[in-house]
Simulated scan of single mutants.
Amino acid sequence: MTDTASYTFKRYAVLAGIILILLSIIFGLSYVRRKNEIKYLTVAADSLLRLYPAFADQPVCIGGRVDGEVPAGLSFRAVLRASYRERDALIFFLPITGKYGVYSAVFFYEKTLGCVFCGLAGVNAVPDMLGTYGITPAAIKVHQTKIEKLMQKYPR
């Protein structure tokens, strides 16, 4: 191998090493972000469910994230597993557009209760405060209807 070929080979090896290190950092950070997002969503759902008066008598126990078990049909930010009165339930996070931007709307679904809107995650806005954020009750009703229709097709 000539000196020029050896020098070029070393340069490409260093470049490949740098690219490999950067890709490792990117994938590592996305893994950490995903773990923190699940913790954030769990805390946000828990705080909204504690504020909601219908769940005052029996607390909701929130489990982990549901991946691949809920059929597609809506653009869920996340779906969390929960239990309410010893029954399985789901907590849906849907993006909803208001006057000041996009918020994560939290919907609680349990088969006997149906779909219940709990509020907006991140800002802890209960359903009574929707007008402040520029979200109409009709928009919430549309999402509730979509979730209920979707869950009728979902065999649980």
Results as ranks from 00 to 15, higher is better:
D3Y: 10
T4P: 03
S6E: 15
S6H: 11
S6R: 14
Y7Q: 15
R11V: 10
R11Y: 05
R11T: 05
A13E: 14
L15F: 07
I19D: 04
I19T: 11
L20K: 03
L20F: 09
I21T: 06
I21V: 14
L22R: 01
I26T: 07
F27C: 01
L29P: 04
L29I: 12
S30E: 14
Y31R: 07
R33V: 08
R33H: 09
R33N: 13
R34A: 13
R34S: 14
K35G: 10
K39A: 12
Y40P: 01
L41C: 03
T42H: 00
V43I: 15
V43D: 08
A44R: 06
A45P: 07
D46G: 01
D46N: 12
D46K: 05
S47C: 05
L48I: 06
L48H: 03
L49S: 04
L49R: 00
Y52N: 10
P53W: 03
F55W: 04
F55M: 05
A56N: 09
A56I: 12
D57R: 11
D57L: 13
D57K: 13
C61A: 14
C61Q: 14
I62V: 13
R65P: 05
R65Q: 11
E69R: 10
E69K: 09
P71M: 13
L74H: 01
L74W: 01
S75K: 11
S75H: 11
F76M: 00
F76R: 01
R77E: 10
R77C: 01
V79P: 00
L80K: 02
L80E: 00
R81F: 08
R81A: 08
Y84M: 03
E86Y: 08
E86Q: 11
E86M: 06
I91G: 00
I91D: 00
P95E: 12
I96M: 07
I96F: 03
T97F: 02
T97R: 11
G98W: 03
K99E: 15
K99Q: 14
K99N: 11
Y100M: 09
G101R: 06
G101P: 03
G101F: 08
V102D: 08
V102W: 06
Y103K: 02
S104E: 11
A105R: 00
V106F: 06
F107R: 04
F107I: 04
F107C: 04
F108V: 06
E110H: 02
E110L: 05
K111W: 04
K111A: 10
T112P: 02
T112G: 07
L113M: 12
G114T: 12
G114I: 12
C115K: 07
F117V: 08
F117M: 04
F117L: 07
F117H: 05
G119D: 05
G119F: 00
L120E: 03
A121W: 01
A121G: 09
G122Q: 08
N124I: 08
A125N: 07
V126Y: 02
D128P: 06
M129V: 03
L130A: 04
G131M: 13
T132Q: 14
T132R: 13
T132Y: 12
I135V: 09
I135F: 03
T136P: 01
I140N: 01
K141L: 15
K141W: 08
K141H: 12
V142Y: 10
H143P: 04
